[in-house]
């Protein structure tokens, strides 16, 4: 598989008047084309920072990001859905297209199609307050997919949901990502979510975040991830790695 993206010796410090916070220390990592890579790490270790750096929103203090497949369009899904209350679901879904001035007939019908495909067609003209947490999360994903990014960055996109919805929505969103054949980097602090959803799991240490380990996840054929015998093994392995440094 080709690499989509490479992080080369990335470090990041935050400067404040009274202190310097070292958030990331020398992380090198590649993201392969079409894979779903999870990043797990203790809370506050620098996961969101890493995504911001990948997206280009924040410059690293040192190191570089190489995007190997052009055009490098990044879609970013944040911890909360942040649907705008003053826009309908359709208008929300078109936000990215609007900002990028790409409101063409073709793109608009693509958004309609996504909404239809993922069960939001009848809510197109409703406001976000009418939607359940899971539906809102789907709408947020559609807003991201609308601009046809080739890399998706997801920052704990399910953390605002309650546990049951969360299991369901996580499966749903990851299957959408697979269906759309996207490359995705998925940040979480939920180990089982990471193991169930992804091709590889990168484990970060406590702040300053360093790369602790990276695991290729493979399940026996014919099993759902969470029911496969390997699931517990991966879970325990990663749990121990996190625990040592927590």
């Amino acid at each position: 598989m080709n690499n989509m993206l490479e992080l080369v010796h990335i470090s990041k410090n935050y400067h404040e008047a009274s202190s310097v916070t070292q958030a990331i220390q020398d992380i090198s990592l590649e993201v392969r084309d079409g894979e779903l890579l999870s990043i797990v790490g203790p809370s506050g270790c620098g996961k969101s920072t890493l995504l911001s750096i990948i997206s280009g929103l924040a410059p690293p203090s040192s190191g570089e990001i190489r995007i190997l497949k052009q055009p490098a369009t990044v879609g970013y899904m944040l911890q909360q859905d942040h649907l705008f209350g003053w826009r309908t679901i359709f208008q929300n879904a078109c936000l990215g297209l609007e900002i990028q001035k790409k409101l063409t007939e073709e793109n608009l019908s693509f958004v309609h199609q996504l909404l239809r495909q993922y069960g939001l067609a009848e809510f197109e003209n409703r406001y976000p307050s009418c939607l359940s947490g899971g539906m809102r999360q789907r709408a947020a994903l559609i807003r991201t997919l609308a601009v046809k990014p080739n890399i998706l960055l997801l920052d704990e996109p399910f953390s605002a949901l309650d546990y049951q919805t969360r299991l369901y929505v996580a499966d749903e969103i990851t299957s959408i990502i697979r269906l759309e054949k996207k490359t995705a980097v998925f940040v979480t602090h939920d180990i089982s979510e990471a193991v169930a959803a992804s091709d590889r799991v990168a484990v970060l240490t406590r702040r300053p975040a360093k790369l602790q380990a990276i695991h290729q996840i493979e399940f026996s054929p014919g099993f759902k991830p969470r029911e496969a015998p390997e699931f517990r093994e991966y879970f325990n392995l990663i749990w121990k790695e996190l625990d040592i440094h927590a």
């Binding site: 879609g75 970013y76 944040l78 990215g96």
Partner: peptide
């Protein structure tokens, strides 16, 4: 984060203000 969202789509400061 709402502002960051607009930024992730490549929005300018004017986009942030108006949107």
């Amino acid at each position: 984060d709402k502002i960051k969202l607009v930024r992730t789509f490549g929005g300018t400061k004017l986009d942030v203000l108006l949107k």
